[in-house]
Amino acid sequence: MPGPLRFSHVGLNCADQKTTEEFYTRYFGFARARVVDLGDARIVFLRQGDAYLELFGADADPARPAQEDGPKAPGRIRHLAFQTDSVDAFLAELGDAAEVTLGPLDFDDFVCGWRTVWLRDPDGVIVEVSQGYEDDRSHDKDGA
């Protein structure tokens, strides 16, 4: 038996790999882990903990979904999501580096202290940044 599966990476097509790499390293805490030279192209791997972003060069203009929290069509990734201690502090640091597409919104009716904002990365990918989300522990097997 091969063992349990665990999340590995998300591959992103980038209009400019350097711009996308700078965005995710500066604002999301990723660091370059490896560059694979393919001769006429390259793949840049960024790592944060056990998660990776795999950056590919793209020939076409970036897609700009009209939806505020990402595309809703089947078979398309809706958005990437990250947690922070403070959405407002994150937005202050981000400044004009990305377009906010929705929010920030408070979801206290669902989880006390949950606050979220959505923005576009340099290639048009929607990125969600939240604070205060917690799992519903009543669903744990032991009921704790």
Rank of each mutant, 00 (worst) to 15 (best):
M1P: 08
G3N: 12
G3P: 11
G3T: 09
L5H: 06
L5F: 07
R6P: 00
F7C: 05
F7A: 15
H9I: 10
H9P: 05
V10A: 10
V10D: 01
L12E: 04
N13Q: 11
N13W: 11
N13P: 05
C14A: 09
A15T: 03
A15G: 14
D16G: 10
K18I: 10
K18H: 04
E21D: 02
F23P: 01
Y24S: 03
Y24T: 08
R26M: 09
R26W: 06
Y27V: 05
Y27K: 01
F28V: 10
F28S: 08
F28G: 04
F30P: 12
F30L: 08
A31D: 08
R32G: 02
R32M: 14
A33T: 12
R34T: 08
V35Q: 14
V35T: 15
V35K: 15
V36S: 10
D37S: 12
D37H: 08
D37K: 12
G39D: 14
G39V: 08
A41Q: 09
A41S: 14
I43E: 04
V44P: 13
L46D: 04
L46S: 06
R47F: 00
R47C: 00
R47I: 05
R47L: 00
D50N: 03
Y52M: 11
L53N: 08
L53M: 02
L53K: 07
E54T: 05
L55R: 11
L55I: 13
L55T: 13
G57A: 15
A58P: 01
A58T: 02
A58S: 07
D59G: 15
D59I: 00
D59N: 11
A60S: 12
D61T: 14
D61E: 15
D61M: 13
P62T: 11
A63I: 14
A63R: 14
R64Y: 05
P65A: 08
A66K: 12
Q67P: 03
Q67S: 05
E68Q: 12
D69F: 05
D69V: 07
K72D: 08
P74N: 04
G75W: 03
G75V: 04
R76N: 10
R78D: 04
R78G: 06
H79P: 07
L80M: 13
A81L: 08
F82G: 02
Q83T: 10
Q83P: 05
T84Y: 06
D85A: 14
V87H: 04
V87R: 09
V87F: 01
F90K: 13
F90A: 13
F90S: 10
F90R: 10
F90V: 13
L91T: 07
A92G: 14
E93I: 00
E93V: 01
L94E: 01
L94S: 09
G95D: 06
D96R: 10
D96T: 13
E99L: 05
T101K: 06
L102F: 06
L102D: 13
G103C: 05
L105R: 13
D108H: 10
D108K: 11
D109Q: 07
D109E: 13
F110A: 12
V111M: 00
G113P: 04
G113I: 12
W114S: 06
R115H: 07
T116Y: 03
T116E: 01
V117R: 07
L119H: 00
R120C: 03
D121I: 00
V129Y: 05
S130G: 08
G132A: 03
G132F: 00
G132H: 02
D136Q: 01
D136H: 06
R137K: 15
S138T: 15
H139D: 05
D140M: 11
D142K: 10
G143W: 03
